[in-house]
Amino acid sequence: MKFRNFKMVDYVVYGRGCFDQLDEIIAPHRKEGAPMVFLLDQYFENDAAFKARIPLKGNDQLLIADVTYEPKTSQVDAIATQLKEQFGTVSGIIGIGGGSVMDLAAAVSLMITNPGKAEDYQGWDLVKNPGVYKVGIPTISGTGAEVSRTCVLSGPERKLGMNSDFTPFDQIVLDPELIKSVPKNQRFYTGMDCYIHCIESLQGTYLNAFSQSYGEKALELCQKVFLNKKEWDAESDEDLMMASYAGGMSIAYSQVGVAHAVSYGLAHVLGVKHGIGNCIVFNHLEEFYPEGVKEFHQMVKQADIDIPQGITKGLTEEQFNTMIDVSLNMAPLWENALGKNWREQMTRERLRKLYERL
């Protein structure tokens, strides 16, 4: 048996207020004439106080990242091309925001140093050159994007990540203060992304002691935050931030499963964002994860959240077929969920019926 040798994040700083150490953290990585590029979530576009805390120097660039939709390969190419044409190269890319912003930052870092277009690298181990220095700073917790080997992108043909040893960040900054202002619904949907990571990892065929140890801790923290606490407080922010980190580590050495495989199709055809898409799908997966879905329903009720229903009603045959194609392209996810003979179990007809229930 051949074991995968995974590349993880090089450096992690954690603690309330650690964002204010960013200047000294990135200082050794500055190169003369080459700017640091800060990709800031559009959520903070009009937050002058927060923007003033970003350590801009010299010709550094502060770019507002439009995450109305999940990152597109064309968006990555546009930013990378602009930076290369204007500066030749950059000292680093720093993503400050949710999972989409961090995925965008990681992808732009890679496209500064790799030829062609971002869509050329959608898949497993296609990236050949290390990117420029990159930092991930989550301002919402749950996706695990801060520790992921994959930056997920929607391309012209498919939604699929750039999954490589060069994708993980060189540095992440985990400051629980940064997630305190997340709106209730968004916090739930993104938190459930973490919860679903745990269920899919812990019940998958790829499970091992490494992924299990992280997955069990992340699951425990999710249950504490979304089931056992009545009010959200500072401790909840800390717990969810650590759950996101541990959940991301769990799937780094295993995989996700049915909910993620199906939600990729929703995102590609309907533009449904990742967190809410996973919730929409997981809401109907009792046949695969009975205990997890039961507990999920309890969390939904306690949080007083309405999960959208009927979003695939009225779709064309072509749209259904595209969703199915995108989903079935996620072979490692299906194998983790159902085993090596997953193609015999998850036929196009069975997947079509599942999509119709959403």
Rank of each mutant, 00 (worst) to 15 (best):
Phe3Leu: 14
Asn5Gly: 12
Phe6Lys: 09
Met8Glu: 15
Asp10Gly: 09
Tyr14Glu: 05
Asp20Cys: 04
Asp20Ile: 06
Leu22Ser: 10
Ile25His: 07
Ala27His: 13
His29Cys: 11
Arg30Phe: 03
Pro35Gly: 02
Pro35Asp: 04
Phe38Lys: 04
Leu39Ile: 09
Leu56Arg: 12
Asp60Trp: 03
Leu63Ala: 11
Thr68Gln: 15
Ile79Lys: 01
Ile79Phe: 10
Ala80Gly: 06
Glu85His: 06
Glu85Asp: 12
Gly92Asp: 03
Ala105Pro: 09
Leu110Gln: 01
Gly116Arg: 13
Lys117Phe: 14
Gly123Val: 13
Asp125Leu: 11
Leu126Val: 10
Asn129Glu: 13
Val135Phe: 05
Thr139Gly: 11
Gly142Val: 08
Thr143Lys: 10
Arg149Leu: 14
Cys151Ala: 02
Cys151Asn: 04
Arg158Phe: 08
Met162Asn: 07
Ser164Glu: 06
Val173Ile: 10
Asp175Met: 11
Leu178Tyr: 10
Leu178Arg: 01
Leu178Phe: 00
Ile179Asn: 06
Lys180Phe: 03
Lys180Tyr: 01
Ser181Glu: 13
Asn185Glu: 11
Asn185Cys: 10
Gly191Asp: 07
Met192Thr: 05
Ile199Asp: 01
Glu200Leu: 03
Leu207Ile: 14
Asn208Gly: 15
Phe210Thr: 07
Leu221Tyr: 13
Lys224Ala: 12
Leu227Asp: 07
Lys229Phe: 06
Lys230Arg: 12
Lys230Ile: 15
Asp233Tyr: 11
Asp233His: 06
Asp237Thr: 12
Glu238Val: 10
Asp239Arg: 06
Asp239Cys: 13
Leu240Asn: 00
Met242Asn: 10
Ser244Gln: 03
Ser244Pro: 05
Ala246Trp: 14
Met249Arg: 14
Ser250Phe: 04
Ile251Ala: 04
Ala259Leu: 08
Tyr264Ser: 09
Ala267Met: 08
His268Glu: 09
Leu270Val: 13
Asn278Trp: 00
Cys279Arg: 12
Ile280Pro: 00
Val281Trp: 00
Asn283Cys: 06
His284Asp: 12
Leu285Ala: 08
Glu286Leu: 11
Glu295Thr: 15
Met299His: 11
Met299Lys: 01
Met299Asn: 02
Lys301Leu: 15
Asp306Thr: 15
Ile307Gly: 02
Gly310Asn: 15
Thr312Tyr: 05
Thr312Arg: 07
Lys313Cys: 10
Thr316Ser: 15
Thr316Trp: 14
Thr316Asp: 04
Thr322Pro: 10
Thr322Asn: 09
Met323Val: 03
Val326Thr: 06
Ser327Lys: 09
Glu335Thr: 07
Asn336Asp: 12
Leu338Trp: 15
Leu351Asp: 12
Arg357Thr: 12
